[in-house]
Amino acid sequence: MRHWKIDTVLQLLKDAGGIALAASADPGIELKSDQTVVTRADRAIEQMFADRFDRPSEGSFMIGEESVATKPESYLDDAFRSLCYVIDPIDGTAPYSAHVPLWGVSIGRMENGALTEGAIYMPIDDEALFTCRGELFSARALQSGAPVVEPFQPRHMALTPAGHICIPQQGAKRWRFDLPNQVFAWSTCVGCYYALLKGRILAYILSCKLWDLAGGLPIARAAGFVNRFADGRELDLAITASGNFHLEPGPMRWRLKAPVVAAPDRETAEYVWSHIRQE
Rank of each mutant, 00 (worst) to 15 (best):
T131Y: 00
T131I: 02
C132S: 14
C132F: 03
G134K: 02
G134D: 08
G134I: 06
E135L: 07
E135V: 01
L136M: 09
L136D: 05
F137L: 05
S138V: 05
S138W: 02
S138K: 03
A139N: 06
A139V: 11
A139Y: 01
R140M: 11
R140V: 08
A141R: 14
A141F: 15
L142C: 06
Q143A: 06
Q143H: 15
S144N: 10
G145Y: 12
G145K: 12
G145D: 11
A146M: 12
A146K: 15
P147H: 06
P147A: 06
P147N: 08
V148R: 09
V148Y: 09
V148E: 15
V149Q: 01
V149L: 13
V149F: 03
V149T: 13
V149C: 07
E150W: 09
P151E: 09
P151C: 02
Q153F: 10
P154F: 07
P154Y: 07
P154H: 02
P154W: 05
R155S: 14
R155N: 07
M157Q: 07
A158L: 15
T160R: 10
T160W: 11
P161Q: 01
A162T: 10
A162R: 13
A162C: 03
G163L: 00
G163A: 01
G163R: 00
H164Q: 14
I165P: 00
C166L: 03
I167E: 00
P168N: 02
P168C: 04
Q169M: 08
Q170K: 14
G171W: 03
A172N: 12
A172G: 12
A172V: 01
K173P: 03
R174L: 13
W175P: 05
W175C: 03
W175F: 14
R176V: 11
R176Q: 10
R176K: 14
R176T: 13
R176G: 08
F177I: 06
D178P: 09
D178R: 10
D178E: 14
L179F: 13
L179G: 13
N181E: 08
N181Q: 15
Q182A: 09
Q182P: 06
Q182S: 10
Q182M: 08
